[in-house]
Amino acid sequence: EYDGGRNSAGERHGFGKALLPNGDTYEGEYERGLRSGRGTYRFKNGALYTGNYLQNKKHGKGVFFYPDGSKYAGDWVQDQRQGYGEYLYANGDTYTGEWANNKRHGQGTYVYKDTGSKYVGGWLNGIQEGPAELIHLNHRFKGRFVSGKPLGRGKFIFDIGCEQHGEYIQPEQEKEEEEEETPSLSVEPQWKVSEITKLTPWTPHDEKAPSP
């Protein structure tokens, strides 16, 4: 069911409203029979997208409201969250930063609503990866993350004016003999303190400090 403009070939073209066979609705711009330009698409399940389209795909700037109450506002490429955008999760957490293939990827900031803690740093395919800072209420950790966990050299910086230097070490895990293969529980990296100092400038060990 369609009500709107058409071109000389009879294709949907210009502004129009459509009721799709699955119960979804679209109101917006068409070009040669395809959703292209600005439009609003309402899903039967309660989700809603309003923004740019290109040849029936979300492409450009747009806002997507999900059925669970979460929301994404930002860049889209070929129906994928890609570029820069902000995601408000159903639990109140937020992520603001770079995306690729629908996943957090690049540089971004994730804020945990329950604790107020904030992760500022790198992401790889949706997982925390690379140099980063984890900021808490009265202290913060500066170091490197690997597969979502801190690993290697870093430091805790306390608001009272001191720093605790050290490194996160991955404990060796002894393999147990098992009759059948079962997934082993991953062991959390352990923090090993090397020294406590006053506040000092610091860069990850594999990054050169700027020349004076």
Rank of each mutant, 00 (worst) to 15 (best):
A209Y: 14
K61V: 01
K113L: 10
W76L: 03
Q164N: 13
A90W: 01
G161I: 08
W202C: 09
Y168C: 03
V63A: 07
L34H: 05
D3A: 09
H59Q: 01
R140F: 06
T40V: 14
P150N: 08
E178P: 00
E178K: 14
T109K: 14
T50H: 04
I196M: 10
G23H: 04
E27M: 11
I169R: 13
H205C: 10
K142W: 11
A209K: 07
K208W: 13
G16M: 09
N7M: 10
P189R: 00
Q170M: 04
G51I: 02
K57V: 02
L134R: 03
R38D: 00
F65G: 01
K103V: 10
G106T: 05
R32P: 00
D24E: 06
V77D: 11
D159A: 12
W202E: 09
K58R: 15
G83H: 03
N125Y: 15
G161Q: 11
F156R: 01
A47G: 15
K57L: 08
R35Y: 02
F145T: 07
P150G: 11
P212L: 13
V120E: 13
F141S: 14
N52L: 05
G39C: 04
L88Q: 13
Y110Q: 12
N22P: 06
G130S: 12
G23I: 04
F141V: 11
K118Q: 13
S186G: 03
K61P: 00
K71G: 04
T25F: 00
L185A: 13
Y41Q: 06
P204I: 05
T197E: 09
A90Y: 04
T182W: 03
P183Q: 07
H13Q: 04
L54C: 13
R35V: 02
S70A: 14
K118L: 14
Q107W: 07
A9D: 13
R104G: 00
R35P: 00
K113D: 11
H139V: 00
Y30R: 00
E188R: 08
E129R: 09
K61A: 07
G83E: 05
Q190R: 06
G116H: 01
I135V: 15
T182H: 10
E163R: 00
L48P: 02
C162N: 08
A18V: 10
V77K: 09
V120S: 15
Q80Y: 09
T200S: 02
I157T: 10
P67Q: 12
P189E: 07
E133H: 04
R144A: 07
I169M: 07
Y168F: 15
L20S: 01
N125L: 14
G130W: 01
T203V: 15
